[in-house]
Computed example of a mutant assay.
Amino acid sequence: MNVINDFYCQEVLSGKTEVQIVKETENVLAYYHTKPFYPIHIVAIPKKHISSLITLDDTDHDLLLELMLVIKEVAQKVTEDHDSCKVITNLGNNQESKHLHWHVVSGKALG
């Protein structure tokens, strides 16, 4: 499969870029962002390539549930430790890497 602009498949899941893992399941990986935009910046991704939230197939429901459970756990921990967090996903032109991913962030944006 020729995947264009997919940092997560090409770098993270391939092992080319090392990451600090926060939570990992059979199908989901959550880790600290390699170039954070917030003081606390965690990314959660499915290990299967899915290009976007809006391209999910009906066959991906179990994977989406597993991903959301990981996001919930990570968001709960960040909220406990830092009083609040945001859970964000980008779509369309705002989605730089064409692999479904969610950001769990806390604090004021850096820079």
Rank of each mutant, 00 (worst) to 15 (best):
K86A: 06
S51T: 13
K72E: 12
A30E: 08
E26P: 01
T17L: 05
I40V: 14
I71K: 09
F37C: 08
V87M: 08
M1Q: 07
T25H: 08
Q20T: 14
N93S: 11
P46W: 11
K35M: 03
N93Y: 11
S106G: 04
S51G: 06
T34N: 13
S51Y: 02
D6V: 02
P39A: 02
E66N: 12
I50R: 12
P46N: 10
P46Q: 11
A75N: 04
K98I: 13
N90W: 01
Q95L: 15
K23F: 10
K48G: 06
L69F: 14
I42T: 03
V78D: 02
H61T: 14
M68Q: 15
T25A: 06
I4S: 04
P36R: 00
E11D: 13
D81E: 15
Y32L: 12
F7E: 07
L56E: 10
L91Q: 15
K86C: 01
H33K: 02
D62S: 14
I4H: 05
C85R: 02
K16T: 04
I40D: 01
Q95K: 06
H33Y: 08
Q20F: 08
T89Q: 11
Y31K: 05
K72P: 00
T25Y: 13
I50W: 08
H82S: 05
K35L: 04
L67K: 10
I54Q: 14
V12N: 04
A109I: 14
T34S: 09
H82P: 00
N5R: 15
L63H: 12
H61V: 14
T34E: 05
K48P: 03
L65V: 10
S52Q: 01
G111I: 10
D57I: 01
Y38E: 00
K77Q: 12
L110F: 06
G92R: 01
I40K: 06
A44V: 14
E24M: 09
I21N: 03
H61W: 12
N93L: 09
Q20C: 06
N94Y: 15
C85P: 00
I4Y: 06
V87S: 05
E66K: 13
V12E: 03
